[in-house]
C-alpha cells in the first residue's frame, strides 16, 4: 500500500506511539549534541571529590575518582548514537545486499546465500565480537561500530529476502493484470515505497541492536579503549564497587538512557508499522 506524503504525515502525526517514540529519540539526540557544551568538565578528568552525589555543581554527581558523571554521560550518549548510526547502516546495507540478491535472483544464488545466512545466524553475534575484540589491542569506536555492523546482517538479510520474494510475486501478478498499462506507475508508486517502508523498519531495529550490542561489548571491557561510552561507565561502576558503596548515580543514568533510546526505537517501529500498514491502523 503506497502512501502519499501528506497522507503519511497525517497518519504519522495521529499515531501516539510514533509521536512518543520519535520525541524520546530526538530528546536524546539533542542532549548528545548540546550536552558536551553544557558541562565545563572533560569526561575523564578528575575534577572533584570522589563519589559526590548529584548536586547543582555536578548534576549527576561524580564517580569514585571524582569524574563528572554528567559529562561522561553526554559524551557516552554521543558514542552510542555513532555506534547505532554506523553499525546500523552497515548491518542494514549488508542485509539489503544479500537479502535482495537472494530473493530477486532466486535459484542457486538464493540457495547458497540462504544457507550462508542460516549458518551465520546461528553463531551468537556477541561471541564472535568477543573473540575478535579480544585480539585487538587498540580499539576505537569506529572499529567497534564496523565490527558490530559486519556481524548483524543475517536476520535482516533473511527478512528482506522474504519480502523481496513476496514483492516479486506480487509484481508479476500486477504486471499481468494491468497488461502493460501503468505498470511502471505500479512499480514506483506501490512496490518501491512499500519496500522502502520495510527497510526503514529494518534499519531502526538494526540501530537499536547495534546500540545494545555495543553496550554489552563495552560492559565486558571490550569496547573502545580511547573514549568513554555508556557501557563502559557501567563497567567502571561495577569494577570500582559502585554497588556496595551505593553510588547509584554512576550506573543508573547510562542504563536508563540506553533503555529509553532502544525502547523508543521499538515503539517508533510499531508506530511506523501501523502507519504503513492500514490493516493495523486503529479506526
Amino acid at each position: 500500500m503506497g502512501l502519499k506524503r501528506s497522507e503519511f504525515l497525517f497518519f504519522a502525526w495521529r499515531n501516539r506511539k510514533l509521536r512518543i517514540g520519535v520525541s524520546i529519540v530526538i530528546f536524546f539526540v539533542i542532549l548528545a549534541i548540546v550536552g558536551p557544551f553544557l558541562t565545563k568538565y572533560p569526561p575523564n578528568e578528575y575534577v572533584e571529590a570522589a563519589a559526590f552525589p548529584p548536586s547543582k555543581e555536578h548534576w549527576f554527581g561524580t564517580t569514585i575518582f571524582g569524574q563528572d558523571v554528567f559529562s561522561q554521560f553526554v559524551h557516552g550518549l554521543k558514542a552510542t548514537f555513532v555506534v547505532g548510526l554506523i553499525g546500523g547502516t552497515i548491518g542494514t546495507f549488508l542485509g539489503i545486499l544479500i537479502g535482495f540478491t537472494a530473493g530477486y535472483r532466486g535459484g542457486m544464488v538464493d540457495e547458497v546465500l540462504n544457507m550462508v545466512t542460516n549458518i551465520v545466524l546461528i553463531i551468537p553475534t556477541l561471541a564472535v565480537l568477543i573473540i575478535i575484540a579480544a585480539y585487538l589491542t587498540v580499539r576505537g569506536i569506529l572499529t567497534e561500530s564496523v565490527l558490530i555492523g559486519l556481524t548483524a546482517w543475517p536476520w535482516a538479510a533473511r527478512a528482506i529476502r522474504a519480502q523481496t520474494f513476496s514483492l516479486r510475486v506480487r509484481d508479476y501478478v500486477d504486471l499481468a493484470r494491468m497488461s502493460g498499462v501503468g505498470s511502471m506507475k505500479i512499480i514506483f508508486g506501490e512496490i518501491a515505497p512499500n519496500m522502502m517502508s520495510y527497510l526503514l523498519l529494518v534499519y531502526i531495529l538494526q540501530f537499536g541492536g547495534a546500540v545494545l550490542n555495543a553496550a554489552a561489548l563495552d560492559f565486558i571491557g571490550l569496547g573502545p579503549t580511547n573514549t568513554i561510552s555508556l557501557g563502559l561507565m557501567m563497567n567502571y561502576a561495577l569494577l570500582w564497587a559502585a554497588l556496595p558503596l551505593g553510588i547509584w548515580w554512576w550506573f543508573v543514568p547510562p542504563g536508563l538512557a540506553i533503555t529509553a533510546i532502544v525502547g523508543a526505537l521499538y515503539v517508533t517501529n510499531v508506530g511506523l508499522d501501523e502507519v504503513f500498514n492500514p490493516k493495523l491502523r486503529e479506526m
Binding site: L212, L243, F251, T259, I261, V262, G263
Partner: peptide
Amino acid sequence: YILTATPYMWLALLLA
C-alpha cells in the same frame, strides 16, 4: 517494550 529494550547488565545492576 521497556523490558526488552533494557540492557541485561543494567537490570542486573539495578536488581543487585
